[in-house]
Design a protein around this nucleic acid. Structure first.
Lengths: 109, 109
DNA sequence: TTCTTATATTACCAGATAGTTGTGTAGCGA
DNA sequence: TCGCTACACAACTATCTGGTAATATAAGAA
């Protein structure tokens, strides 16, 4: 798929959904397996409403799936490839840190 | 690298930098090779100041690098792995579209 | 029914962000 | 020197977004 103007927005939306610390923490928590909203609120230290709202974003972008059981909503990762992306970006982060360390060393020899 | 609370923000910043259509278009334009700000403004149809500002974001996150020559700034991709990420997210996008198409079919049989 | 639990939704506010306009700055040719 | 070009930066505005509090919904227990 090429990055045409029309789908640049759709791709950006998917990246934007991952561009939030709380949502990354939610995905990280879900890595252990299916969780309820309450579980996730406890694990991430977030408020119930806030966690629920962030989960809607992840749900809409298809990163997670939902299963209802009584009054409980169980969320789970739909596509583990999201962690491949995290690892890629982590690799870039390492390189970026190295680059910045070198710049600092060059400025303060 | 694990997704601890401390670096969740750093990782999110890197995703957030890609969560903008104009910045994706800039990267796409740079895929052809080194470009000046003027080139990029023309290719993306953005204003000079806006393009320059978005380039700072990509520069700070280490996605692009800059080389100055006279009054011209030449930008280029530093890490082509960003396109691997785009392809991953595009794959997810395809699956997501399929999923939504199936949902529509289920609702309107 | 009434109470409790679990989640979603709404309204609101403070802070962030994209885009534009105008200005500053640096290099270069006339 | 005086423009002219290319870019960066600051200020401003409209819009968006994260967090919270309050409310709505819905299921089950008492």
């Amino acid at each position: 798929m090429e990055l045409s103007d029309s789908n640049a927005s759709a791709i950006a939306e998917r990246f934007k959904a991952l561009g939030e610390p709380m949502r990354l923490r939610l995905l990280q928590a879900l890595r252990a397996g299916e969780c309820s909203v309450g579980d996730l609120a406890e694990r991430t230290g977030g408020g119930q409403a806030n966690v629920s709202k962030h989960l809607q974003v992840l749900l809409q972008q298809g990163y997670v799936d939902r299963r209802k059981e009584g009054t409980t909503s169980w969320y789970r990762i739909t596509d583990p490839q999201v962690f491949t992306m995290c690892e890629l970006v982590c690799g870039g982060l390492e390189e970026e840190l190295d680059r910045k360390r070198k710049l600092l060393r060059r400025r303060k020899p």
